[in-house]
Amino acid sequence: MPLLQCKNLTVGYDTHAVVSDLNFEVCRGDYLCIIGENGAGKSTLLRTLLHLQPPLGGQIQYGDGLRARQIGYLPQQTAAQKDFPATVYEVVLSGCLGGIGHRFFFGKAERRRVEDMLARLDITHLCDRCFRELSGGQQQRVLLARALCTEGKLLLLDEPTAGLDPMATQNFYDIIEKLNADGRAVIMITHDMKAAVRYASHILHIGGKQLFFGRTADYLNTARGRAFTAANGGQDDV
């Protein structure tokens, strides 16, 4: 059973549909890249998958033990976070909030989980550092650790390498590849076609409607796939 399955899903705001009739699924161990031009509806789709806004039509089904609030989400950074006084530990701990239900405070289990994730992403030494003083790549690792605290079966990454230098970008992709190899499913929104072609097992290309969904190799055999890759490939995220 897939972790996430969308049937005839239409997303948009109020009554205005941005993308309609999406049919795709994500199974354990899949690495799905969602691609498309700016304004194609990638962010709207993502907000809908996270239940931040209701779908205009169709269904989103979760399975394989995954619940809607357990998606490990790595959002784009907000301007307010640039000068936010918070330690790495505090930021990562906030990822456990979904798991404590109606309790007010974190317990030992949550603290241990945070230490696990810090160790796994190799940032234990940054634990007491201030989030705003870290480099872009370190900040993304911290936010990824926070995302892993939710449950971690499905990671949803929103242009995770935007604004990172090439070195940090490569490190980040390596981490995601490792997490994916451990059996986590990954959904990544990206403009970086080189990375999409290299890492993704599946591609979802959207632009008003579903233009393609399937295996990456099959995508590269379509005329649209070749054209889009050629137009966006060879360039890093702009």
Binding site: L52, Q81, S94, L97
Partner: peptide, 22 residues
């Protein structure tokens, strides 16, 4: 005191907090 953790989450990252069920 009682909502401290939730206030932090909402202040630091509203979208993430909402996505994880706060």
């Amino acid at each position: 005191v009682f909502l401290y953790n939730r206030i932090f989450a909402v202040t630091f990252d509203e979208t993430f907090a909402a996505a994880t069920g706060t």
